[in-house]
Design a protein around this nucleic acid. Structure first.
Lengths: 325, 325
DNA sequence: TTGTAAGCGTTATCAG
DNA sequence: CTGATAACGCTTACAA
């Protein structure tokens, strides 16, 4: 079996306490003892058992990350940034891709709450999971409204909606359609819809929002987008809920003979690095993923130390100016 | 503090053993006792402490995933699929984005080997990390050669290289350049280079491979790609190491006045779902991420049960036929 | 059908 | 400077 502290102690002819002291560099120790212990460790290829340590300290140095799926570039980039920040602080990352399945999310939660992690960062879109309320655990939400106790880190969705809409108007479009998630979801992304509608009205234009569930397949989405063109042949521009949707819309538009940007404009949302590399011509609103991650980790740290925090952190967005709008 | 087993036992007026039995549905118990215990649990909002259980069982039900970064769509999709499969088997996932930093990879390894995880799935590109050799832990590699003890799951890189090269030749290109990672890395992706070179020679064409480090920035990559056109103005097609590189190359080509596919062809590699949605016109080789994930998890399971496994699993690739080549 | 007690591998208190 | 020993919260022989 894997050697334990006791084996090292025996081999080095010292007590367990001493080995533990060497391991944690605590207290006074003679150099001779230290050397003997290290030698014994090497000889046995000893590695301390983290779980035993976790039990005693009742902390795991693990942070849970609950997101829809890292297969989506936005969440992939965000999770990557979170991991980087957490690693720097000595935390490792336990990841759960709830994939919009409330059952899976609740199951994860149930298991993570159980002292498996020291904290949680949540960015899923599911609603009404009651476990969050009784969760006796520091939590931070990213782009998701949970309950009054849980601080939110988000990008400036209102400004993003405004920027996108203004861009399309400024480019000469009048019939502009917006796609967004279900209206009943209490997500900050809803503010984009509000911004879009407000900006349209301020310009005496008629807002029109299509609801597109994010869980559905690309094929189903495309059908909805085709309907947009059928039901509103006058449409000149679309402000999409995210970049993948924007790409799908461009694709549909081109199939229907619309040329971008000559007679149809598209603007996306998220603007991750990968998407900017794959489609540099797609005009989009960039969410500041790096700063969001940094802020979330910082706030989580404060929560874990019982320091006070704000309830909401709003980070600035930027326009990525391509040729699609 | 959070309630423990003992508190539940006291409240229900039974022993710790009984509570544990109820919790694990083991042995014979009277319904009355069961009900009393459940009631007590609810009253205290009790949740068992996983770490204590982990210590006793000396297993964590955690699997470590070591990959370069989930911000890259290929690894994002792969990690997503791995998580899905592992979750189904009752495992949770601890993730490490080594980001091509050998120090970080070694540090992760050091900590994960320490009884923190029950198994490891590795897909990083770093070389020469000796910890893997002494690792007393079931490991499976994805698209990476580690050492003789560690089974590899990969897609059919040779066939992929062949398919891509043949496609370009069949489309009429003669001056075809291939980009690939450093030749000294013992990665299965090297077989693509071999396949490319073999296929070219079989058609009496001269192969030419440019080495492009994957860790470098998009900007640095673009400079290398520009050099391709400068140094080889006769180039008619590029078989890129991956889809992101393919996109960058297309971008550079267009900036230099080359029209795709009229006078320049590009074929990518990976063919993840997101990329196919964003750039449906990009011809590429699709790696079977879902099957690779499933196979890796299956093999890891066998390893963990000390069952014999093959040393190599090669899964079939497919061509995604776009318009870029 | 239920309980007692030992043990999982650490750390920390206290004594020397 | 070093060593017994209890404790972290759970599971499981073994006993009753």
């Amino acid at each position: 079996m894997t050697p334990k502290l006791e084996d090292v102690a025996k081999l080095a002819k010292v007590s367990k306490t001493t080995v533990s002291r060497v391991l944690n560099k605590r207290g006074y120790l003679s150099q001779k003892t230290i050397d003997r212990v290290y030698a014994a460790m090497r000889e046995l290829n000893y590695h301390p058992n983290v779980v035993a340590r976790q039990l005693y300290k009742s902390q795991t140095n693990l942070i849970g990350l609950l997101f829809p799926t890292v297969a989506n570039p936005f969440f992939g980039e965000l999770v990557d940034a979170l991991e980087k920040n957490l690693y720097r602080q000595g935390f490792k990352v336990l990841i759960g891709n709830s994939m919009n399945d409330p059952k899976k999310e609740a199951a994860y939660l149930d298991q993570l709450l159980i002292k498996q992690v020291d904290g949680l960062i949540v960015g899923t879109h599911n609603q009404g999971i009651k476990e969050y309320d009784t969760a006796n655990l520091p939590i931070v939400a990213i782009d998701r409204i949970m309950n009054a106790d849980i601080p939110i880190v988000e990008s400036d969705n209102y400004r993003g909606g405004e920027l996108a809409t203004e861009r399309l108007i400024q480019r000469g479009a009048k019939h502009i359609i917006h796609t967004n998630g279900p209206i009943d979801l209490e997500t900050p992304a809803r503010r984009r819809r509000v911004a879009y509608e407000g900006t349209m009205q301020a310009h005496n234009l008629e807002p029109l929002t299509y609801t597109v569930d994010f869980n559905i397949s690309a094929k189903a989405k495309k059908e909805i987008f085709e309907k947009i063109f059928q039901e509103h042949p006058e449409v000149e521009a679309v402000f999409a809920a995210n970049d993948v949707d924007a790409a799908l819309i461009m694709n549909v538009a081109q199939k229907l003979g619309r040329q971008v940007p000559k007679d149809f404009l598209v603007i996306g949302y998220d603007g991750t690095q990968v998407v900017r590399e794959l489609m540099p011509n797609l005009t989009t609103i960039m969410q500041p993923t790096a700063q969001m991650a940094e802020q979330a980790v910082k706030v989580l740290g404060q929560r874990m130390n019982n320091e006070p925090t704000e309830t909401e952190y709003i980070l600035p967005v930027k326009l990525w100016s391509g040729t699609s709008a």
